[in-house]
Amino acid sequence: MKMLKDTWLMFQRYLLVFLRNPAWVAIGVIQPLLYLVLFAPLLKSLVQVPGFPAGGAYNVFVPGLLIQLGLFGASGVGFGLIAELRAGVIERFRVTPVSRFALLLGRALRDILTLVVQSLILLLLAIPFGLKPTVVGVIVMLGLVALIGLGMSSLAYAAALALKSEDSYAPLIFTLSLPLLLLSGVLLPLDLAPGWLQDIAKANPLSYAVNAARDLFNGKGFDQAVFEGLAIMAALAVVGVLIGARRFTRAIA
């Protein structure tokens, strides 16, 4: 109960911080938008290639783009935390009786909200290009993005608390997020990949999210891939939150 109340308070505070710089919502959308405009058209000519998933270029590409948005959006959240660490804000909260879960969840919820808003904007912008969303597909897709946001931002916060400086945090997230992205099949479907690459990708939880996301837009509906994707992202979120909250509890020496 106290945890929920504290989480709500923290969420409000971080939302306020965010609303003071609303430009960040737009900045987060710009990169995926560039992919949509400058990269996705290349896929049109690949649709006929054997192994390319059904549903048309945009119904294949845009869902993956949302997963990418979730990954990149969430992995950058540690920068804000490091700034707060330096400003003494985190110590200030840790001296209060506030729930340690709330310290993490309050900000992660704000991150999720941001991602969901950005995803909606991107989905709307993709419709004129030829994306054909269904209401249920969009809702489940947003749920998937929210789970990725929760898991990834929690892990990003844990890393930021452990590293305490942008100088070591930035290289870490860049080195980790690129292979995660490439091995998830966001840019080109992994069905086109050689066997060994497909095998490595199977170890990447995000590739299940991408598969799930594609099936939500190609008319296959709730198939096994969707449930797998949701389950794996939910597990990622639970693990991420546990690791993140543990970091907030432990002394930040």
Binding site: R20, A87, V89, E91
Partner: peptide, 12 residues
């Protein structure tokens, strides 16, 4: 507790 570093966020 008032830390050496301060305690408030610049935006708020």
């Amino acid at each position: 507790y008032v830390s050496q570093e301060g305690s408030s966020a610049p935006e708020i």
